[in-house]
Amino acid sequence: MLVRQLLSMKSDSAKPWIDPSLIVTIQPDTTMADAARLLAEKRIGAVVVSTDGKRPEGILSERDIVRQLGKHGAEILSYPVSEFMTRSVQTCTTGDDALTILERMTEGRFRHMPVVDEQGEMLGVISIGDAVSGRLKELAAEKEALTGMIMGA
């Protein structure tokens, strides 16, 4: 399965509050408190940090916020996202293999990845849950095909 298929599956999502055509981004100078509020409001696990809304400059996850709260206390809520975001954002393209993306996420211990085009502009964001769901659908289709071959033989 390819990343483009994962993105298209999101549009068939059972989560009507998620608009797959909308990439949620925030400005680097947004406060951590506002970022946490946005994540809660949108019911998402991470937000892409981008000045122009097109190119990822960083990513901030719920885990990032919790870790910084644990390390530095509530005072970080007034700091800008740029202080704590992950700057080395891993990206993928629509032609990448979903299993490879799943392996990259697992090895890198991150859960969200922006999908970009040839110019580096974002087309969407996939989560590790999207990749796992895609893989499970592939396995179910393979099982069905093998069962059909065995029963038909």
Score class of each variant (00 low, 15 high):
Lys42Ala: 07
Arg43Trp: 06
Ile44Arg: 00
Gly45His: 05
Gly45Ala: 03
Ala46Asn: 03
Ala46Trp: 00
Val48Leu: 07
Val48Trp: 02
Val48Arg: 00
Val49Cys: 07
Thr51Tyr: 02
Asp52Glu: 13
Asp52Val: 15
Gly53Thr: 10
Lys54Ile: 02
Arg55Trp: 03
Arg55Phe: 03
Gly58His: 06
Ile59Leu: 10
Ile59Tyr: 02
Ser61Trp: 04
Glu62Pro: 08
Glu62His: 10
Glu62Gly: 15
Ile65Gly: 12
Ile65Glu: 07
Ile65Ser: 12
Val66Cys: 05
Val66Ala: 14
Arg67His: 13
Leu69Cys: 06
Leu69Ile: 06
Lys71Gln: 15
Gly73Met: 14
Ala74Ile: 03
Ala74Glu: 06
Ala74Pro: 05
Ala74Leu: 08
Glu75Trp: 01
Glu75Gln: 11
Glu75Arg: 13
Ile76Asn: 09
Ile76His: 11
Leu77Trp: 13
Ser78Ala: 15
Tyr79Ala: 14
Val81Tyr: 00
Val81Ala: 03
Ser82Cys: 04
Phe84Asn: 01
Met85Gln: 05
Met85Arg: 05
Arg87Pro: 07
Arg87Ile: 09
Ser88Gly: 06
Val89Cys: 11
Thr91Glu: 04
Thr91His: 10
Thr93Asp: 04
Thr93Cys: 11
Thr93Gln: 14
Thr93Leu: 06
Thr94Tyr: 02
Thr94Arg: 07
Thr94Trp: 00
Asp96Arg: 08
Asp96Pro: 01
Asp97Thr: 10
Asp97Ile: 12
Thr100Ala: 14
Thr100Cys: 02
Glu103His: 13
Arg104Met: 10
Arg104Gly: 02
Arg104Phe: 06
Arg104Val: 09
Met105Thr: 09
Thr106Leu: 10
Thr106His: 08
Thr106Ala: 14
Phe110Val: 07
Phe110Asp: 06
Phe110Tyr: 15
Arg111Pro: 07
His112Arg: 08
His112Phe: 12
Met113His: 04
Met113Tyr: 04
Pro114Leu: 05
Val116Ala: 06
Val116Cys: 09
Val116Met: 10
Asp117Lys: 12
Glu118Asn: 06
Gln119Gly: 03
Gln119Ala: 15
Gln119Arg: 11
Gln119His: 10
Gly120Ala: 05
Glu121Met: 13
Leu123Asp: 02
Leu123Val: 07
Gly129Arg: 09
Asp130Met: 08
Asp130Leu: 06
Ala131Pro: 01
Ala131Val: 05
Val132Asn: 03
Val132Phe: 11
